[in-house]
């Protein structure tokens, strides 16, 4: 099998223990030509110092302040691999995942993104079927697709063609956090590439069993949902979707007795200027078929 260089890119911000564990697991990945890039978002807990000492093979890029997901773009721009594996700071690919990802890309030139089956690091091995051991044999037809709709991908585990990612302008830095994968997915699909989930390409993620009580998740998910609509949907769909989202903001603000959704909605309108020059509606077919579960924004808080 051809083994082109693959770049693993992740970012971090004050999550030293999780990141170091992920980097140790990445060392176990069975693939001969791998580079690992970590972009540190100005951590103050000693993360960059520890990476420099403990993981000399890692290309560490340090930001002077927390710039959110824009740090990924720095990593993407510095990547030299033909393919990029995108990870969270607390996720890592299963041992064979990169090799399988490359095989899928090499087999299908129209495959833009290999979306990993992202599983819970603490529990997945307890609940998975042994008959589906990652031998590759059980996964002849492994694309987890749907006939009538399209899917985006999960940034805790996804492979993408580097050149394609560059062509679509990387992640939308104005989003800062959340829904960035969906925005990128719109543009990848609009270029005629496919995004497929594969059951035999697994990544592990340290899924937190607690509420996201911080304001960040509900705020950025909600604000960016508006921006996702305005950037990507044709006018005929953008209008009703916007009105529906406004209604949801009021509904869930009342249901959960919080102002955070209304603040996020106001922030979306007030800061709409940040999207200047960035709206490019996708084809109606993609807009209609890409499955975006907007209601996710309202399910983290209480």
């Amino acid at each position: 099998m051809n083994t082109p260089l693959v770049s693993i890119v992740t970012i971090c911000w004050n999550r030293k223990a999780d990141l170091c564990e992920s980097l140790r697991r990445i060392r176990e990945v069975d693939y001969p030509d791998l580079e690992v890039i970590v972009v540190d978002n100005a951590s103050t807990d000693g993360t960059p110092e520890l990476i420099a000492t403990e993981f000399p093979e890692v290309r560490l890029i340090r930001m002077y302040k927390n710039i959110g997901i824009e740090a990924y773009n720095i990593g993407f721009q510095n990547a030299r691999g033909e393919y990029i594996v995108i990870l969270d700071d607390d996720s890592f690919p299963q041992r064979d995942a990169v090799r399988r990802m490359v095989a899928k890309f090499e087999r299908d030139p129209q495959l833009g993104v290999v979306a990993f089956d992202v599983r819970n690091f603490y529990n997945y091995d307890d609940v998975k079927n042994d008959a589906f051991k990652e031998t590759g044999q059980a996964f002849r037809g492994t694309a987890a697709t749907a006939e009538n709709y399209l899917l985006a991908f999960n940034g805790a585990g996804a492979g993408v063609r580097r050149e394609l990612l560059r062509e679509v302008g990387f992640y939308p830095e104005e989003f800062f956090l959340y829904w960035n994968e969906q925005d990128t997915a719109f543009r990848i699909l609009d270029r005629g590439y496919k995004i497929n989930f594969f059951a035999d390409v697994v990544a592990y993620h340290k899924y937190s069993p607690t509420n996201r009580s911080s304001w960040r998740a509900p705020f950025y998910y909600t604000r960016n949902a508006f921006w996702l609509i305005w950037k990507n949907y044709p006018l005929g769909m953008a209008l009703p979707l916007t009105i529906r989202l406004i209604s949801d903001c009021f509904y869930f603000a009342l249901e959960q007795q919080t102002l955070i959704y209304l603040k996020a909605m106001i922030a979306a309108f007030v800061n709409m200027g940040r999207l200047k020059g960035k709206r490019k509606p996708v084809t109606p077919e993609i807009a209609k078929n890409l499955r975006i579960p907007f209601n996710v924004a309202f399910t983290f808080y209480r």
């Binding site: 209008l239 406004i246 709409m272 960035k278 490019k280």
Partner: peptide, 29 residues
């Protein structure tokens, strides 16, 4: 809650329908 949120939305929807198309054209690539 749904009735209340629909009422609030109806008020805002008027402005959205009037101004959003214009604003979306302004941010177009």
């Amino acid at each position: 809650i749904a009735v209340l949120s629909y009422l609030c939305t109806a008020f805002l929807a008027l402005f959205v329908i009037l101004f959003l198309p214009f604003k979306l054209r302004k941010i177009e690539k």
